[in-house]
Nucleic acid binder design. Structure first.
Lengths: 241, 241
DNA sequence: ATAACACGATTAACATTTGCGTAGAGCTAA
DNA sequence: TTAGCTCTACGCAAATGTTAATCGTGTTAT
């Protein structure tokens, strides 16, 4: 397959729910080292907080859920998540090994049921398989059009307009703008931008960002030397809006 | 007013691939009694015949695949199915129990890996869970004629015309055009196209896409070097329209 | 206030990537 | 066999990305 594409997509976010500190850490580490962004919590109630928002805007892309939790059990979490309308993929992880346990877990809305102890390679493979399946169904593909004042960015079409006029951006310029528009007002350091747009393995100078910002301004701003969209925050970086 | 007939959903069709007659019968019976339509075959080569058609017209909705088959192995079947671009859910069923076996199975494109012996209730639960997850794809059967300007694509007949004139496309060219026409304006990266048209485990170069795009333009465009249908989006991929 | 300094802006030279077009080899089916 | 399809390889040209040197401007210490 071709060279992996630059990180135009934000990293996949996994929620790990497990009360045993050792296991939780092991899992979190294994998944992090595979490039996932891991949010590891130790209780069901904390897990529930991650699903307070709208199902259209889930705070994670996949849940690893231990069943035997003190207080709010894993089954409760699963039920709650589904009842609230989230279709986030869930892999249940449990020491309970009976067929009935598995069936109940799956029927309650989990996508997979993995019995402890298990190997990290299998865990990762199952996560990947499930994410692959979910991605294909476009659950996560609902990229919304981003707007700010008279600027519009169409993620599906890699296209930007200002005041209805097409703006022709290079890939780096486009991704910079995309990152900016995904969180207006937020200040981005050069390093964070490099990480988001160029990828973690970029080894060059952070000054590179300056140049691309300049070019982006050239194409977006009315007066590139007195920008109104992409603002400089001296000593910190840049922000949009 | 007449009573409207109950909206009858077509039954879910499962393909069971298992060489052991007893096991195959047991599985087929268990699944039939759950309301599934079961197509049980005893060899890999027979299974392959079920995937001769177009990925948009799969002959089944889920595959239960034994790995240890005489002749064409289960892994071969899985690989073939994915390589041809089918996204049909696959549950691998195997006596092989090592973590490596499972990881390989999942990485090759299976959605789940179930170790023999297993209970029928769990099997059914896993089928249901997987179908539930895949269901969002839902539009199996839509098969509408796709039009854009003077180009028309007839999915049922795998046929394309431009200005009423028949355009003779190879399978890859046809699939490419089909993917494009299913979402006009949308930008497709080479990798995404490989995934959609070639299947997830295609191991070749993404430059391959370029060449097929070239051929497609050759047959579709008035001036292939100045395309008006299939446009290049430098740094991102291609788009239609 | 002003000089020294730090940081960002700007530009141009240079390097790399990307896409196009072509040719040819491997494979399969008629 | 021939013919069609698929994939890989290579060279070219243009677009894009990176580096580095210089210029401006705001900040700070004296």
């Amino acid at each position: 397959m071709a060279v992996s594409p630059p990180p135009q997509a934000p990293p996949t976010r996994l929620l790990v729910v497990e009360d045993d500190d050792t296991i939780r850490e092991t899992i979190a580490e294994a998944l992090s080292s595979e490039g996932f962004e891991v949010d590891a919590v130790g209780s069901g109630s904390t897990a529930l907080e991650r699903f307070k928002g709208s199902p259209d805007n889930p705070s994670c892309d996949l849940v690893l859920l231990d069943l035997m939790l003190p207080g709010v059990s894993g089954l409760d979490v699963c039920r709650y998540v589904r009842r609230r309308g989230f279709s986030t993929p869930i892999i249940v992880v449990s020491a309970r090994d009976s067929e009935t346990d598995r069936v109940v877990g799956l029927e309650i809305g989990a996508d997979d049921y993995l019995v402890k102890p298990f190997g990290m390679r299998e865990l990762v493979a199952r996560c990947r398989a499930l994410l692959r399946r979910s991605a294909r169904n476009g659950d996560s593909g609902a990229k919304e059009v981003l707007r700010f004042e008279d600027i519009t960015l169409y993620p599906e079409e890699c296209r930007v307009t200002r005041g209805g006029q097409e703006v022709n951006l290079s890939p780096k310029e486009y991704r910079l703008l995309e990152v900016f528009m995904q969180s207006p007002k937020r200040v981005w350091s050069r390093d964070k931008l490099l990480e988001r747009v160029w990828g973690i393995d970029f080894m060059g100078d952070s000054k590179t960002v300056d140049v691309h910002i300049r070019w982006l301004r050239e194409k977006l701003e009315t007066n590139p030397s007195a920008p109104t969209y992409i603002l400089t925050v001296r000593g910190f970086g840049y922000r949009f809006g």
